[in-house]
Deep mutational scan, measured.
Amino acid sequence: MIINNLKLIREKKKISQSELAALLESSRQTINGIEKNKYNPSLQLALKIAYYLNTPLEDIFQWQ
């Protein structure tokens, strides 16, 4: 199971779900699903999230 700190990191950087979704060329619903652990992002999307949040991938997503 993958757990994530996306919501915590996103809020700390003062970025809304909609703003992050626009940067990622994704939907706000996708970001919401990832944050609620209802959806696991593809590797490509996970890497883009890490890039746009300027945060190491392993700080956002962790195996448990």
Rank of each mutant, 00 (worst) to 15 (best):
F61R: 00
L24N: 00
I31D: 00
K7M: 08
P56F: 06
G33P: 01
Q29D: 14
I34H: 01
I2H: 08
M1H: 06
I9L: 09
S27R: 09
D59I: 07
L57W: 04
K12Y: 10
Q64C: 11
I9V: 11
F61G: 00
Q44A: 14
L53D: 00
S18H: 11
Y39H: 10
N40V: 15
F61I: 02
E19W: 09
I49D: 00
E58A: 12
P41E: 03
K36Y: 07
K13Q: 13
L45F: 14
Q17N: 03
Q44G: 12
I2N: 06
N32A: 15
P56A: 09
I49N: 00
A21T: 03
E35Y: 04
L45D: 03
A22N: 12
L8F: 10
K14T: 05
Q64A: 14
N32D: 15
K13L: 13
N37W: 10
F61S: 00
N32G: 08
R10F: 07
I49T: 00
E58C: 12
L24T: 15
D59E: 14
I3N: 06
L20D: 00
N32R: 15
Q62M: 11
P41V: 10
K12H: 10
L45V: 05
N5A: 06
N5C: 13
Q17K: 08
I49E: 00
Q64K: 14
L47V: 11
A21F: 02
E58N: 12
K36I: 11
S16P: 05
K36F: 06
L57K: 01
Y52I: 15
I34L: 06
K12D: 08
L24F: 02
P56R: 10
I31S: 01
L45P: 00
I9G: 01
L47G: 06
L45K: 00
K38R: 13
I49A: 04
L57T: 03
I9H: 06
S18K: 13
K48G: 06
P41C: 04
R10P: 03
K12Q: 14
K7W: 05
K7A: 11
A21C: 04
I49R: 00
N37V: 01
L6P: 01
Q44C: 15
E58Q: 12
T55D: 01
R28T: 15
Y51S: 07
L43F: 13
I31P: 01
S27C: 08
D59F: 10
Q62C: 09
E19R: 14
L53V: 03
N4M: 08
L6M: 10
Q62W: 06
L47N: 09
I31C: 04
M1F: 08
I34F: 04
S42P: 12
S42F: 04
L8N: 13
L43T: 07
E19G: 10
A21E: 02
L24A: 12
L6Y: 00
K13M: 14
S27F: 05
I60E: 00
G33Q: 15
R28P: 15
N54L: 07
N4L: 10
R28Y: 11
A22E: 12
F61D: 00
I31T: 01
P41S: 02
L23K: 11
L47P: 00
D59A: 11
K48V: 05
A50Y: 05
M1A: 06
L45G: 00
N37D: 07
L45T: 05
I31M: 03
L43K: 10
Q17E: 04
N5Q: 04
A46F: 04
P41L: 07
K13E: 06
R28C: 11
N4P: 02
A21Q: 02
K13T: 06
K36M: 14
A21Y: 02
T55I: 06
E35F: 05
S27P: 11
F61M: 01
Y51D: 07
M1I: 11
P41N: 03
K7I: 07
I60N: 01
S26V: 15
T30G: 03
G33Y: 13
E58I: 09
I31H: 02
R10E: 03
I49V: 05
N5Y: 08
Y52N: 05
L43S: 05
E11K: 11
N40H: 12
S26A: 13
K14D: 08
E35H: 02
N37E: 06
I3T: 10
I9M: 07
P41K: 03
I15W: 06
I15Q: 02
I60A: 01
I15F: 08
I31Q: 01
Q17L: 12
L8T: 15
L57E: 00
R10T: 03
Q29P: 06
N40F: 14
L8G: 09
K38P: 02
L8K: 15
A22T: 12
